[in-house]
Every structure is written in structure tokens, then in C-alpha cells.
């Protein structure tokens, strides 16, 4: 079959379609951990548009936003929710800090889950995230 235009897995296509219609920030990676999409709602939190970043390999996006814990210690990819979702094939949640492409530091929470089409076959993962409300408030 012609391979000139590789086809995304249907699950990723559906994930992207869904994310593009949500008001919640969503980040989608493929089976290799490459960032393949984040939605419009994610742009103010990440301080960049997807049109600006385009696809980023796992090593790229994991450092692009300089994730750290609340004490300022860098968080390696494998300990980020998406890393855990990939490594362990399960949902994962964590609070951490990032520095957006607009150089603004933000505290966020993220929940990631793997896209498994069989028990042992992962085609990608999704992270849903949001900016933490300032200390002493409860958000919405």
C-alpha cells in the first residue's frame, strides 16, 4: 500500500477530534510519545499555540515547558503523568509547575491515561490538565 501519506491510528484521530471540541486543555501524544496535538484551550496554559510548536518528540515536549515540582526540582519525563501512563499503562495524576512559551510560570494539575487498543498495544496517550487556582482559593 502507498506509504506516501502515513495514516494516523483511528483512535488518535478520534482523540484529536474530541479534544478540538473541548474547553478543557488536552494534550495528545502518539504511540512513540510524540506530541501530535494540543487544543485551543491548552494554548493559554502552555503559552504557545500548536501551530507554533507543531509535533514534538517526547524528549522535546518534556523539556519545552520545564516541568518542576513545587520545590523547583525538575521532573523527568517518566515521572510526568504522560510518562507514567506510557510506562505503566495506567492513568496517572500529578500537580506540578511549568513555564509557558510566554515565559510565565504556572502551577497545573494533569491527569493522563493511555490509549490502549489491546491489553498490550498502546497507540498514544492523552493528558487533561488545568491551571491550579491560586493558594487559598477553590477555583470555580
Amino acid at each position: 500500500m502507498a506509504e506516501a501519506h502515513p495514516q494516523r491510528n483511528l483512535i488518535l484521530i478520534l482523540a484529536r477530534d474530541l479534544a478540538s471540541r473541548l474547553a478543557t486543555p488536552v494534550f495528545v501524544v502518539d504511540h512513540e510519545g510524540t506530541l501530535v496535538y494540543f487544543n485551543e484551550a491548552a494554548e493559554p496554559v502552555l503559552g504557545r499555540t500548536y501551530a507554533e510548536t507543531g509535533e514534538l518528540r517526547a524528549g522535546g515536549w518534556a523539556t519545552e515547558w520545564s516541568p518542576t515540582d513545587d520545590e523547583g526540582r525538575p521532573i523527568p519525563l517518566e515521572d510526568l503523568p504522560l510518562g507514567v501512563a506510557f510506562r505503566e499503562g495506567r492513568a496517572s495524576h500529578r500537580s506540578f509547575r511549568i513555564v509557558g512559551g510566554d515565559r510565565v510560570a504556572r502551577a497545573i494539575e494533569a491527569t493522563a491515561f493511555p490509549l490502549l487498543i489491546r491489553e498490550d498495544e498502546i497507540v498514544g496517550a492523552i493528558a487533561v490538565f488545568w491551571e491550579r487556582p491560586p493558594e487559598g482559593t477553590t477555583g470555580r
Binding site: M1, A2, H5, P6, Q7, I13, L14, R16, D17
Partner: peptide, 17 residues
Amino acid sequence: GSDLSTVGTEWISGFAL
């Protein structure tokens, strides 16, 4: 969920077939 006339072909279901 897709605008078939504008979305990148790799994101069109069934395109490669």
C-alpha cells in the same frame, strides 16, 4: 468531527485505504 476539505490528510479516517 473533521472538516474534510481542510484537515491534513493523515488525520482523515480511511484516507490511506
